[in-house]
């Protein structure tokens, strides 16, 4: 799945798009650690709005995106936040009640 990201046209976003395209089925990687607000929010919403079930959005950010948590929750997504050792934050989003994703996360 390739989300439409044409509104975000700078080089960093282009790399992000490449990451998304190259990711394995079921996991969408999104590195927004070098983007200024509110670009990470807009980019994540674009991906989440088209994200099929049995898929995880794996987002790398330099801080917790609180406004995104709220919007994603309102739209039926759950999230899990992990603080990485390099100071970055990994946030995983998936559809609520997606048992396959949940069991996959538990197993990992």
């Amino acid at each position: 799945m390739k989300p439409s990201l044409k509104r975000f046209s700078d080089p960093v976003v282009a790399n992000t798009v490449a990451n998304v395209a190259a990711s394995v089925v079921g996991v969408i990687k999104l590195d927004v650690s070098e983007l200024e607000p509110p670009e990470p929010y807009g980019l994540a919403i674009e991906i989440l709005s088209d994200m099929p079930s049995e898929t995880i959005l794996n987002m790398i950010h330099r801080k917790e995106p609180y406004p995104l948590y709220q919007t994603a929750s309102e739209m039926g997504f759950e999230h899990k936040t992990t603080f990485l050792c390099d100071g970055m934050v990994q946030i995983q989003f998936w559809h609520k009640d997606d048992s396959i994703v949940q069991s996959s996360l538990v197993n990992n």
């Binding site: 975000f8 807009g42 674009e46 709005s49 709220q70 309102e74 739209m75």
Partner: peptide, 18 residues
């Protein structure tokens, strides 16, 4: 403007870029 969208993905996607 994002708050006005009240979590509506389709509306949020129409928000103008910075």
């Amino acid at each position: 403007m994002q708050r006005f969208c009240q979590g509506d993905f389709e509306k949020i996607k129409t928000l103008p870029h910075m």
